[in-house]
Amino acid sequence: MQTRSLEILVGFFVCLGVAAVFVMTFRVASLDTVGRGEGTYSVSGVFQNIGGLKVGASVTMAGVKIGRVRDIEIDPSSFQARVSIDISKRYDKIPEDTSAKILTAGLLGDQYIGLEPGGMDDYLADGSELTLTQGALVLENLIGQFVAGQSDSKEDKLAEAIGQLADSLKSSSEAKQGAHP
């Protein structure tokens, strides 16, 4: 019958569309539930300058994503940035003296927090404080400091410094490309 074939076509269309939605969700989007779906615990740290860090940025350890930034606020007493992060419960044996650094993915990429494990036997738990922190490196400040420290024979040194900077950036971007073969 005519309606029958129509219904089959519609069924086919809906299957096709739903399949496309599924492929998009699993193949295209990163369906990472770290710090969202599963259980997490929260720790925080105070940074001098967070640069361009945003809520939702990832928190990694040895390059593996283990959590995300939940909240950023100004500490009312020290006027520094207090960053709260959620870490997946799966990783509950992280030493207490672990240090946190704000890093940049690639040359101009997003900023994220990298954790470097310490060696203590006590572990981070909900509400713990990360005491060893290093804020973001802000390019302008670096250059400014450098220039101020080299006020004599400025020209040569500045040229040299920029050359060095360029070299280091180049090697870091090469290293990054190496990470994605």
Partner: peptide, 10 residues
């Protein structure tokens, strides 16, 4: 339209 959009994007 959402289904068509999914197909289009894919």
């Amino acid at each position: 339209l959402p289904l068509l959009t999914a197909i289009f994007s894919l």
